[in-house]
Simulated scan of single mutants.
Amino acid sequence: MSRDDLPPGITLRALQGAELERHLDAVAGLRIAVFRDWPYLYDGSLAYERDYLQTYRESAQALLVGAFDGDRLVGASTSTPMEDHAAEFAAPLAGLGLPLTTILYGAESVVLPDYRGLGLGHRFFDLREDHARALGRSHVAYCSVQRPEHHPARPTQYRTNDAFWLGRGYAPLPGVIAEFSWRDVGDADESKKPLQFWMREL
């Protein structure tokens, strides 16, 4: 299946402004469902999500690429100008010598399990990179959580997305690590997690 071919009923829409905002609660539901699994182990709540996703309400250049099965949101990829995103993510980039205004930050790409393997990941990256170019950005960056190799919750057959990302032209930035807090499944309180930055020059 090519990147432009999707099964009947599945559509992709690039949303901004009021259309983006209208779907943010659905994005929250996807994040809660998908990130509950390894490696994020995120025990999410709608209240936490609404606070986190406020960035997309406030950023005029935020983008939501939504994958819809009919009217149901089944996958989502979000991005904002780097300077509009949370300071916890922007600060680690200060030593690169790149102005934040040259970077588009890709916050997440999440797809429900039944809709994986359809090429949505590639289309998410295509449209995110198109948006970066339209904004005059020269780089796209995102983060990936780091977990200990022998973490007790790590699935035996788990495969990282590294090969996919490398194939898209992205590479990890050595030593460029963000920290962000959330509550893991089974924990009573939030804890900080290290997140590795990846980047590509367009």
Results as ranks from 00 to 15, higher is better:
W198M: 01
Y52I: 13
L202H: 14
I177F: 01
I10E: 01
R57V: 13
G44Y: 01
G175P: 08
R50N: 03
K192M: 10
D51G: 07
P148W: 00
A60Q: 12
L24K: 06
L6S: 12
P92R: 08
A87Q: 14
G106V: 05
P99N: 06
L118R: 05
A141C: 04
Y105S: 08
L46M: 15
R168N: 06
L173A: 08
W38L: 02
D189R: 12
Y52W: 15
H131Y: 03
S79M: 10
H150I: 03
S109N: 03
L98Y: 03
D130P: 11
L104M: 04
A153Y: 10
P99I: 12
M1C: 03
H150F: 13
L12T: 10
N161I: 02
P39V: 00
Y40G: 01
H131K: 07
R72V: 12
A141F: 04
E49I: 07
D5Q: 15
W38I: 00
Y105F: 15
V140C: 09
H122W: 09
L135R: 14
Q196E: 11
L98A: 01
S77I: 01
L93W: 01
A153P: 02
Y115H: 14
R128P: 04
L195R: 04
A60I: 01
P92H: 05
R22K: 08
F89E: 03
Y142T: 15
L173N: 12
E21G: 11
E49Y: 03
L195P: 06
A76G: 11
P155S: 04
E201T: 15
P99G: 00
E19G: 13
A178L: 10
L15D: 13
T80N: 13
F180W: 13
D43R: 07
D5W: 15
D189V: 14
F89I: 13
R147K: 09
S59G: 06
D25N: 10
E58S: 13
L53P: 06
A14H: 02
V140P: 06
C143H: 07
R200M: 06
D51I: 10
V65I: 14
E49G: 02
Q196W: 03
I103N: 05
Y158I: 02
E19H: 06
L98F: 00
R116V: 06
D162V: 01
V145N: 04
L100D: 03
R147N: 05
A14M: 00
R3E: 05
A86M: 09
L173F: 01
D187L: 14
R128V: 09
A14Y: 00
P8R: 10
L96I: 07
